[in-house]
Design a protein around this nucleic acid. Structure first.
Lengths: 337, 337
DNA sequence: AAGGAGTGAGAAAACGTTTTCTGAAAACGT
DNA sequence: ACGTTTTCAGAAAACGTTTTCTCACTCCTT
């Protein structure tokens, strides 16, 4: 029993042979090229379905020079924000027949560049979300990764669109919201030191400080996780603040949980705000006042920019800024008397 | 200014030319083949770095017949459970140098088969998570998708490992937990009708019924989302049940929220349990009693099975069952007197 | 010193497509 | 009816690698 081509994956050659035509013709038929005789086309199609032929994507990619796939680099697949962004990109890309390759750097910032490079080699483009990467490294990376779309990072390099969330405005809105409720001692539970968006929040808070000289604003070290918020309870209480701006919703939720354990009432004793408006922010107890970031839409737009890049080779919208939207809920209330 | 090969992507040919050797030699050097003269190897490496050469993944894939990529089909990228599973697969695969391609069917069950097929053509294998797909379609799909690993689906087909969560056992444990607290009227807020895991839960509850004749157990229509839980409040209250087994944590959270709005106290008036133990289950108010499913680990194991398949071509562990672990928290308490 | 084994590099085939180029036949105009 | 254009299918090149095969050379053995 010679195993000659016994169960080899069937290719375009088999179809051609079976239909009695050449490879070229099969290819033309499969790609809907009109310039082929209807009879022959039908014969080819019949052969294709009979043999259950499906063109090999790799061979196709090689010939076409495109993979119909883009890579998305995220710092942490466990973070709801990046999950939502990824979902936005994935679904929008799927609409246009593109697929998404995940590159999860697992918070290991040093791996991001390599990861992105590897992904780029398999894909037609990269959506890069690397909040902790230092500017110099980012700028050095850009040429080798093009076409690329940046999330929450800015660059002077031409041809690289970036989608930005105005964290500065958002945090100011939250701070103003708290002062409007009578809070005069406010604490900012900050995020990871090298995070770009944390920097934007700090800048926003500087502006807030300038505009509200009477308000005492202290900045406390924190983090970006639930645990970071949970562990910050002591620091918050020690600060004497009656209003707390948490770096994001996860931190705020951790803080809520910690305060609850201590018997501190929210918002009667302390008001807490988050940031992002992740799906669960609405359902904490009390529901979390936060600045809603349309992150899924950011993901969708990231794809649209990428699509522009892949088409014309240029996108007219190089910088898009999204404004967070204040969501006033139960976790913030009047300052205690 | 002739644009002759001006800024073409530099390939192995360029390196070979630059180093004064043949393509074959460059390939050998790049792949760490020892049988090449150290001097020449050094020269090649120098040329490669000088030209900033990186081998093209597509060409490589074509020659090697592998893509170092697997596809993961998920029904809904917005669901924390599938997110966690995806994360497990992605990270475990990354450890072995493999990448993950997302295929999000967005709950459109009819698309799953096509989606999986398309993904399969670009990848070395498929991890399929399709709880709603009918058995017949699944069985028909298996041969064309192999190598494949199934999540929460069973099959008689040989060579296709499946990872199962014992939802029947988990729901029984929760039901027993409630009866232990004195609840004699229990409601099961069921999931999507055609969901496989919902079927397993129902089977488990039949066993429970057999073992606990005195307990009144009613099954109510529901769903799998937060909203489904939220909208079921009336039905739950009308049923007169004092203990509610929600299909999953999302539903339970929606229910908690709805009950809270109605002023119904949990667990004093009604006990509520979830399923899955998603990251936020611990932080609801009250914290959710649930059956913890090690879903990230399921994802990891899915990769390990896939790795087996990709290696030997066979995996010895064809069926692995994971037992949910009862997490007793604040949302369940003694039945009202 | 001659022959055989071993070493290492290049030529070329292979992977599975698409597409350009070529050429034959058909359609058309006069 | 002849020449010109058009239509359409096949041969072959191209995409960028890996790998087999071949062959020249060196080194060792006798």
């Amino acid at each position: 029993m010679g195993r000659k081509a016994a169960n080899r994956r069937i290719g375009i050659t088999d179809v051609a042979q079976h239909a009695g035509v050449s490879l070229a013709t099969v290819s033309r038929v499969m790609n809907g090229n009109l310039s082929v005789d209807p009879d022959i086309a039908a014969r080819v199609r019949a052969a294709a379905t009979e043999l259950n032929y499906h063109p090999d994507a790799v061979g196709r990619s090689l010939a076409l020079g495109k993979t119909d796939t883009i890579g998305v680099v995220v710092p942490d697949l466990a973070n709801p924000t990046f999950q939502a962004m990824l979902r936005g990109v994935s679904r929008a890309a799927a609409q246009d027949g593109y697929r998404v390759l995940i590159a999860d750097s697992s918070e290991v910032s040093s791996e991001e560049a390599i990861l992105a490079g590897e992904a780029r080699r398999r894909c037609d483009g990269i959506v890069l979300c690397a909040p902790r990467m230092v500017d110099a490294e980012l700028d050095a990376l850009i040429p080798s990764l093009h076409p690329m779309v940046l999330i929450n990072r800015n660059t002077e390099a031409p041809g690289t669109p970036s989608l930005l969330v105005d964290y500065g405005q958002g945090i100011q809105a939250l701070a103003v919201h708290l002062t409007g409720l009578g809070h005069s001692r406010i604490a900012f539970l900050s995020g990871p030191p090298r995070s770009a968006s944390n920097g934007l929040r700090l800048q926003g808070l500087e502006k807030f400080r300038a505009n509200h000289p009477g308000i005492e604003l202290t900045v406390l070290p924190g983090g970006s996780s639930f645990e970071a918020g949970h562990e910050s309870v002591d620091g918050i209480l020690a600060s004497g603040a009656t209003g707390v701006l948490a770096f994001n919703d996860l931190v705020a939720m951790g803080l809520l949980s910690g305060l609850h354990e201590r018997g501190v009432r929210v918002p009667q004793d302390i008001s807490v705000t988050g940031f992002d408006d992740i799906p669960f922010a609405e359902y904490t107890t009390p529901p979390l006042t936060t600045a809603a970031v349309p992150i899924t839409e950011v993901g969708e737009q990231a794809w649209h920019r990428m699509r522009d890049l892949l088409g014309d080779g240029a996108s007219e919208n190089l910088r898009t800024t999204f404004q967070p939207d204040l969501q006033q809920r139960g976790s913030s209330g009047p300052a205690p008397a």
